[in-house]
C-alpha cells in the first residue's frame, strides 16, 4: 500500500476535495477546498478525476515522507510545481511566498474514508478527512492506487497561473448585490465599494473576517435566519463584513450586503491575515 507519513504538519493542513453535496438543508456546510481553482488545477496536472482529494495547506507547508515513488503537483496562489518523489523520500515543499493556501495533489489522490459522500475535512463537526481534524506529525495517510504511471507529467517548471493579483498591490473582488443591500445607507454602501478592508487573524475556513470603516445601516431592522452561500458577505451589527467561505454555516441572521462572484472566491481564499481587499460591483 502506498502511504504518506506526516513529519511536520504545517500550520493547518487538511484533506479536502470538491465538498459535500446534498446536506445543506440539514445545516451541514459544503466544506471542500477554499481555493477551488487551485484545487482543480492540482488534480488536472496529475491526471486525477476532478473530485480526487488533495491536501490543503494553510500558512506554512508540511513535511511529508512517501513510502513509494509518487508523482504529483503543488499549486500555489500564483504558480505550480510538479512533484516526483522516490520511495522513502522525505519531501519539503517550497514555502508560501504569495497567497495563503497551497494544494498538494498526488496521482490517484489521498485515500481517507469518505464520509457522507466526500473526503473533505469539516473540523467543527469533527468529520471527514483524516479523523475529522487537521493533520498532526505522525499521521499516516493512504494514497489511492493508480493504474500505470501518470502520463500527464511532462513539463517540469513553474508556469505562472496568476491566481491572485500579485503581492503588494491591492486586490479587488467583484460582488453581486445581496438581498439586504438596501438595508445599508448611502454612506455604508459607498464605504463598502470604495474602502479597503483588512483580513482579521480570526479568519478561518468558515469565513474571511474583515476589518475597516464600519458599514452603516439605514435602520435597525432584524433579519430572521436566512440562507447563506459560499461568498455571501454578511454584516453583523459591528458593521465589519464577513465573507462566508467553504465551512460556512448554511443559514445566518445578519444582513447580506452582497456575494463575491464565484471566479473571485480564490482571491479571498488566498488572502493572508493583514492583507487588504476592495470590493467592486460586478458589471
Amino acid at each position: 500500500m502506498r502511504t504518506v507519513e506526516v513529519i511536520e504538519p504545517g500550520m493547518y493542513t487538511t484533506v479536502q476535495d470538491a465538498g459535500r453535496a446534498g446536506y445543506l438543508r440539514y445545516g451541514l456546510p459544503p466544506s471542500g477546498a477554499m481555493d477551488r481553482r487551485a484545487f482543480e488545477i492540482a488534480n488536472a496536472l496529475v491526471g486525477n478525476s476532478p473530485e480526487a482529494a488533495v491536501l490543503e495547506c494553510t500558512g506554512t507547508m508540511p513535511v511529508l515522507e512517501f513510502s513509494r515513488a509518487v508523482s504529483g503537483a503543488v499549486v500555489y496562489a500564483d504558480h505550480f510545481q510538479f512533484l516526483e518523489v522516490s520511495a522513502g523520500e522525505r519531501k519539503k515543499f517550497q514555502t508560501l511566498e504569495t497567497g495563503y493556501r497551497a494544494y498538494i495533489a498526488v496521482a490517484g489522490g489521498f485515500d481517507t474514508p469518505p464520509v457522507m459522500g466526500s473526503r473533505s475535512t469539516y473540523v467543527p463537526g469533527k468529520l471527514g478527512g483524516f479523523e475529522g481534524r487537521p493533520l498532526r506529525a505522525g499521521d499516516v495517510l493512504s494514497l489511492a492506487n493508480v493504474d500505470g504511471a501518470s502520463s500527464s507529467v511532462e513539463n517540469e517548471g513553474a508556469a505562472f497561473i496568476s491566481l491572485a493579483n500579485g503581492a503588494g498591490s491591492s486586490v479587488y473582488a467583484r460582488v453581486i448585490p445581496g438581498p439586504e443591500a438596501d438595508w445599508f445607507d448611502c454612506g455604508g454602501l459607498n464605504t463598502f465599494l470604495t474602502e479597503a478592508f483588512y483580513v482579521s487573524s480570526k479568519s478561518d475556513r468558515t469565513g474571511i473576517r474583515l476589518e475597516g470603516a464600519p458599514l452603516s445601516f439605514r435602520h435597525e431592522a432584524q433579519l430572521v435566519s436566512s440562507g447563506i452561500a459560499m461568498g455571501t458577505i454578511q454584516v453583523p451589527p459591528s458593521g465589519q463584513p464577513i465573507v462566508m467561505m467553504a465551512d460556512h454555516p448554511t443559514t445566518g441572521g445578519y444582513p447580506r450586503i452582497g456575494n463575491v462572484v464565484r471566479d473571485d472566491l480564490p482571491i479571498l481564499a488566498q488572502l493572508r491575515p493583514g492583507d487588504d481587499v476592495r470590493f467592486v460591483e460586478a458589471g
Binding site: 445581496g178 438581498p179 440562507g227 447563506i228 452561500a229 456575494n259
Partner: peptide, 17 residues
C-alpha cells in the same frame, strides 16, 4: 425573488416566523 450570488435564488415571503 432575489439573487444570492450567481447560483442561488431566494424565493422570499414577508419576514416573519
Amino acid at each position: 425573488f432575489e439573487q444570492l450570488g450567481e447560483s442561488s435564488l431566494l424565493a422570499q415571503l414577508p419576514q416573519r416566523i
